[in-house]
């Protein structure tokens, strides 16, 4: 599928593609939004500046995915970002959770970044060419995130004492939601069949576990047992009150007049 026009001619293809794009866009927007909440609050000034760039990158990636959706006949990117209901949001619940402490934010980011890297890799040869092209670019930008988060993750673990304890608590909290990041939602099978994504979710998950176990070893952390099924499945539009609050805040000004130019 070279273009939006072609994709729009195949109903089943379009349905699956759109659903995946919403997952990608919502993941990035939600995490970027959470990241931006660290502005002015990071442990040191230089790190504050760096973390904000990560936040901007994530929102920038969301913009890209929303633009793809718009090309496919969905509403304009701002409407998609600011005016969709809670039940229409497809991000993994892990990413909507409040930031917690630096250990939680770093660990969550790192774990998501590794997943995102694998998912992007599986999109670089997507049958939907505009998505494949974007995935290559986005993956290059994500390199820095992975590097940066990995540095913190490993160092906090290796430092022992309070840092390690906090990191262990963070992992424990993340484990409640981690199951929700894997998987491509209700159209998973179709997405793979259509080669929109070139690897099944299960295979990516196995690779994620391998890479993460390595990082845990570096950080001198014990690998926890397997995770429980998630309480909310974000990929199916189920979300925590934390996302509801986030969306309230995010759209506060937008809602004053959604037709106005701000």
């Amino acid at each position: 599928m070279e273009s939006a026009e072609q994709a729009q001619k195949n109903e089943a293809y379009l349905l699956a593609l759109r659903d995946l794009l919403y997952q990608l866009a919502d993941d990035e927007l939600t995490l970027g939004h959470r990241d931006s909440e660290w502005l002015g609050l990071s442990p040191d000034i230089e790190g504050d500046v760096a973390f904000s760039s990560v936040a901007q990158d994530e929102v920038g990636h969301a913009v890209f995915y929303f633009e793809l959706l718009h090309e496919l006949g969905e509403k304009d990117p701002d409407r998609l970002a600011f005016a969709r209901d809670l039940s229409e949001r497809k991000n993994a619940v892990l990413l909507e959770r409040e930031n917690g402490d630096w250990a939680y934010s770093i660990a969550r980011h790192f774990m998501y970044d590794v997943w995102d890297d694998l998912r992007l890799e599986a999109l670089t040869e997507s049958s939907y060419v505009p998505l494949a092209k974007g995935a290559i670019k986005i993956r290059r930008e994500e390199y820095y995130h992975l590097l940066h988060m990995h540095s913190y993750f490993v160092r906090l673990g290796q430092a022992g004492k309070e840092a390690k304890k906090r990191l262990e608590l963070a992992v424990k909290a993340i484990w409640k939601d981690i199951g929700g990041i894997f998987g491509f939602g209700v159209y998973e099978q179709k997405l793979v069949e259509f080669n929109i994504i070139t690897k099944p979710a299960e295979e990516l998950k196995q690779r994620w576990v391998k890479r993460m176990q390595q990082a845990f070893a570096e950080a001198q952390l014990t690998w926890p047992d397997s995770w429980e099924p998630v309480q909310y499945d974000g990929r199916r539009g189920e979300h925590s009150p934390e996302l509801e609050q986030l969306l309230q805040t995010m759209s506060e000004v937008y809602r004053i007049d959604p037709t106005a130019r701000w």
Binding site: S36, E37, F82
Partner: peptide, 22 residues
Amino acid sequence: WVPKAPSLRRKLAIMAKVQDEM
């Protein structure tokens, strides 16, 4: 106002601006 910026472009721009101040 970063979390409340009313469009994607404004959201990015105000983040970049506050980041510059830091």
